[in-house]
Design a binder for these strands. Structure first.
Length: 588
RNA sequence: GGGCGCUUAGCUCAGCUUGGACAGAGCACUUGGCUUCGGACCAAGAUGUCGCGGGUUCAAAUCCUGCAGCGCCCA
């Protein structure tokens, strides 16, 4: 109802301004400070004061009178406080919020009939997924979920860099080294087994081999790359075997988050189908193309650095192939969103600019950048084998969560004997949830230094705090279910929201009402972290309500109204967690 | 050298896109609350040169500009 109320406030304010002969271009809509339980406010009076030659508070009063005159559904009353206009919700606002949130779909916005492809992770298939890049699948998956809630038709893609030099080196190494000479893998999983060849190759080329051996290896690596460039099927097969094996293992790790993909799109696909060559031809014919230092470049407007799109040796570059990739996205989807590390910032700007030059509407392209997770001693590298594997982080998180559950087992008030399976389930939900929540709740552009204690802190403003609210709400509903056979997914009782008249109940209902607007904002700005911030506010409102308002022991009318409120809160908190990819346990 | 990003309480972070009501949370610290639906909770207290300087404005954490520290990028 928040969205509807905001629309109504905008309309009423515009009409009032119009009637009084004021400009309506800037309504100054904002949210009121916390000590006011109004839902919306406006500071427009400040801006009109000089024009009206009247002090702001007087203008505000004048506007309030003008608005009062009109008919309203969700605006209960308008009051001024100094120069500010504050809008209080009507009884109907609360009643409809309560009714709307009885649905398990609460927070899902109407279908936009717009398809969007979310590309995320896209890490080079060279070895185990490490924590340095772990923000990508977590942010990317949350973003995809938020967009689905916002009514988009979403596909998740992983773009596989299978054409770069690193992969050619890897392919050469896979043939060159004998497994017997390699160290034991850190885990029994394909990517851990395979990365040994990759690391051995880099050590060999950089430190161990004599000049002659390096030359021989380089010749082989070059021939693999040339083979790909020329469409040699045997080169694709050799590279494909290595890439698919490593990727298979990485995929298993990502599924633990869970981050799943609808499609793994290979870079070589756009070499094989000729679209990269076509892009090169078209770029050469644009007015921005220059031939300098034996390479074809684009002299992009507003970007100092030229974009090289054909190398000296005639081969294409990563970005050239990515241009073909993006035109393919534009052919198949209405919008495209990409989650990229901060190191791709320049590339992304060049890509956008080049796509524009090629005649594409780049408003359809959205980009989210995130900073690395680093260790106190520095960055993480697959090649050097420095860093924390995501598998290890998740294992540790689950172990610590399990320990936490077991420690709390004795002083549980609720006598619902947890089985071994329950403990295992909770450990997974809480452990993985805590990791995801910690990452998704921060702005992606801020750097994170990884520290075990901090990453696995279950107190703080963390997932378990919010998950606990869901478990509490579920507990109450289950109990009510036992007593009255109510449907836990929505109460079919005739409920009057006006029975919910304490501050705690009203505050909770106002928080619940905001959820769809939060989804809309997160989707619009591609910022899933605002949903995480919201879950905390909602959880806090619920806990205050929980403390002050007994549900099952209240008199019949109040009990039914409060039960409906608990159902609504459960849907809001459950779906908000779901939107950022954190599981909502029914018990913990 | 050039470009992009970050800097808010002792610590971890919201708020900045669209300037507006005393800058908000959590952790840690002090205190109170379990015969009551789940204490991974609630309530109260204390905590700030919003990196530094200048500018625009009735009004700046928010916009512009210079600088510093850190991170990243420049076939």
């Amino acid at each position: 109802m928040f969205l509807a109320m905001r629309a109504e406030v905008e309309e009423a304010l515009t009409a009032a301004l119009d009637r009084l002969g004021y400009p309506t271009d800037d309504l100054g809509i904002e949210e009121p400070p916390e000590d006011l339980d109004a839902v919306l406010a406006s500071s427009v009076a400040f801006r009109l004061a000089s024009e009206a030659a009247t002090p702001p508070p007087a203008v505000a009063d004048e506007l309030a009178d003008a608005i009062d005159a009109g008919p309203q559904e969700y605006i209960g009353r308008v009051e001024t406080r100094g120069p500010y206009l504050n809008f209080w919700p009507s009884e109907r606002y609360f009643a409809e919020t309560l009714a709307e949130a009885q649905s398990g779909e609460f927070g899902t916005l109407p279908d936009r009939e717009t398809s969007v492809v979310v590309e995320h992770t896209s890490a080079n298939p060279t070895g185990p997924v490490h924590v340095g890049r772990a923000r990508n699948p977590i942010i990317g998956d949350a973003l995809a979920r938020v967009l689905e809630y916002a009514g988009y038709d979403v596909e998740r893609h992983y773009y596989v860099n299978d054409a770069g030099r690193q992969i050619a080196v890897f392919t050469w190494a896979y043939d060159f080294f004998d497994e017997a000479d390699l160290p034991e893998p850190e885990r029994e999983s394909p990517e851990y087994e395979m990365v040994r060849y990759y690391r051995a190759a880099n050590t060999y080329l950089e430190e161990e081999a004599d000049e002659e051996s390096v030359e021989a290896a380089e010749a082989e690596i070059q021939s693999i790359m040339q083979g790909l460039e020329e469409g040699d099927e045997s080169a694709y097969d050799r590279v494909g075997e290595v890439v698919d094996t490593v990727l298979g293992g990485m995929r298993d790790t990502l599924e633990r988050l869970p981050a799943e993909f609808d499609e793994f799109v290979k870079e070589t696909r756009f070499m094989r189908d000729g679209s990269t060559d076509e892009i090169i031809d078209r770029l050469k014919n644009t007015e921005y193309a220059v031939y300098e230092d034996d390479a074809w470049q684009l002299d992009l407007p507003e970007i100092d650095k030229n974009l090289v799109f054909v190398r000296e040796d005639g081969t294409s570059l990563y970005t050239t192939r990515d241009l073909a990739h993006h035109e393919w996205k534009f052919d198949n989807f209405d919008e495209a969103v990409t989650v990229l590390g901060e190191d791709h910032e320049l590339q992304a700007r060049q890509l956008r600019s080049a796509l524009e030059i090629l005649g594409n509407d780049t408003d359809r392209l959205g980009t989210v950048h995130y900073s690395w997770v680093t260790l106190p001693e520095g960055g993480m590298s697959t090649r050097e084998g420095t860093g924390i594997d995501l598998d290890d982080l998740l294992d540790e998180a689950i172990d610590r969560a399990r320990q936490e559950v077991e420690d709390r087992l004795e002083d549980r008030i609720r006598d619902d004997d947890l089985s071994e399976e329950d403990i295992d389930r909770i450990a997974h939900q809480v452990g993985i949830g805590a990791v995801r929540y910690d990452i998704v709740s921060k702005q992606p552009t801020k750097g994170i230094t990884f520290e075990w204690e901090r990453a696995l802190d279950f107190e703080a403003q963390s997932a378990p705090y919010v998950q606990y609210v869901h478990a509490r709400a579920s507990g109450i509903i289950a109990e009510a279910h036992d007593e009255n056979a109510v449907d836990p997914d929505g109460l079919d009782i005739d409920v009057d929201a006006s029975d919910l008249d304490t501050d705690a109940e009203r505050t909770l209902l106002r928080e619940i009402a905001r959820f769809p607007a939060v989804i809309e904002e997160a989707a619009e700005d591609l910022q899933p972290h605002v949903v995480a911030t919201y879950t905390r506010d909602l959880a806090e409102a619920f806990n205050t309500f929980y403390r002050e308002c007994p549900v099952l022991d209240a008199d019949d009318e109040t009990r039914d109204a409060r039960l409906a409120l608990v159902v609504a809160a459960r849907h809001a908190v459950g779906n908000a967690l779901d939107a950022v990819g954190v599981q909502a346990p029914d018990s913990m």
